Computed example of a mutant assay.
Amino acid sequence: MNQRGPLCVLTCYILWGLLPVFWKTLAAVDAFYVLAGRIVWSLVFITAVLALRRGFSAVKEAAADRRELGRLTLAGAFVCVNWGSYIWAVNSGHMLDASLAYYMNPILAILLGTMVFHEKLTRLQWLSVAVTFLGLAVTIVRYRQIPWVALIIGGSFAVYGAIKKGVQTEAGVSVFFETLALSPFALAFMIAAELRGAGAAGVLHGAQWLLLPAAGVVTTVPLLFFARGIKTTPMTLSGILMYINPTLQLLISVLVYREAFTATHAILFGFVWSGLLLYLAAGAVKERREKKEGTPCV
């Protein structure tokens, strides 16, 4: 197996896991303004990358396909929800919810797969889904509220992934169109916020202004690593490596930013981790069975 592929994927997940530290540096700025800046500067950065790669022929091809363009625009809308809720969670003391969201994401994704793509689950996979949702039920009873933050972050990313299943465009061009569709609204929001005195002026000073364009870099670079590495990385290995991201977020939230890890958090995470172990076990059993039957694993 080519080792560069898994190394690129690993780098992506580590960068995503460390990303809350970056968003914390912008905690004084309104979360929606940060989101708007992230969209605009991501477009600027990916445009520069495509120019260096001479990748605008692929941009023209995608632009000529109306259905592909529609899928990319819809993907942009959902990734906007994901980015915005994630930034708000990190900068509002809900980093644990952000971590939980990405532990829950595989379970939400396979549940979405059964409803949208009519994928069939094994009994062990259904059990993993049931265990995860039992943890949510226990949390609702104890907290007397639904963990909306984690569900919105994890759910929006699961839907984004489902939309991307039908996208043929390569990652860089996809990010270009996703951010291009959102940038006019994002730029208008930033200008309106500055005119109202609710933007970054008066909050950021000197070199701190560089954090806004840096948001485009820290958004795009992990995606480029992922796009390069996933082509030669087995999906099972990629799935296991993915948990580095929420694990780093969990450790950072508790050890660095001192968010309270309560008994309810422990119960919920315990159920979710159990569901993940069952999910991974189900994948291993399925792969072993397919190898035994001589069927190629997908």
Rank of each mutant, 00 (worst) to 15 (best):
R228S: 12
V149R: 02
L212A: 05
L180E: 03
T264M: 04
F261A: 06
V167T: 15
V175L: 14
P184T: 08
P246R: 01
L248E: 06
L212I: 15
F185P: 06
F261D: 04
L187G: 02
F261Q: 08
A198Q: 12
M235H: 13
I240G: 01
G199S: 04
A186F: 08
M242W: 10
M242K: 04
I252L: 13
F189D: 09
R258E: 12
T169I: 11
R196P: 01
Y243A: 03
P184L: 01
S156R: 02
V175R: 04
K165C: 08
I163N: 07
G270K: 10
G229P: 14
S238V: 12
V217L: 04
V159E: 10
Y257Q: 09
A263W: 14
T247R: 10
T236D: 03
G199E: 04
F271Y: 11
A158Q: 08
H205P: 05
Q168N: 15
W148S: 06
E259T: 11
M242C: 11
S183L: 05
P246N: 02
F271R: 00
G270E: 09
K231E: 14
Y160C: 00
G216S: 05
V159A: 03
A260S: 11
I267D: 10
A201C: 05
F157P: 09
A198P: 08
F177H: 08
I230R: 08
L187T: 01
V159W: 00
I230E: 15
G270Y: 09
L241V: 10
V175G: 00
I240F: 09
L187Y: 05
G154D: 02
L248R: 05
L195R: 10
F269R: 03
T247I: 13
M235T: 13
L151Y: 00
V167H: 01
E259G: 05
T262G: 12
F176R: 08
T232K: 05
I152Y: 08
T169A: 14
R196D: 15
I153N: 03
G199Y: 05
F176I: 13
M242Q: 14
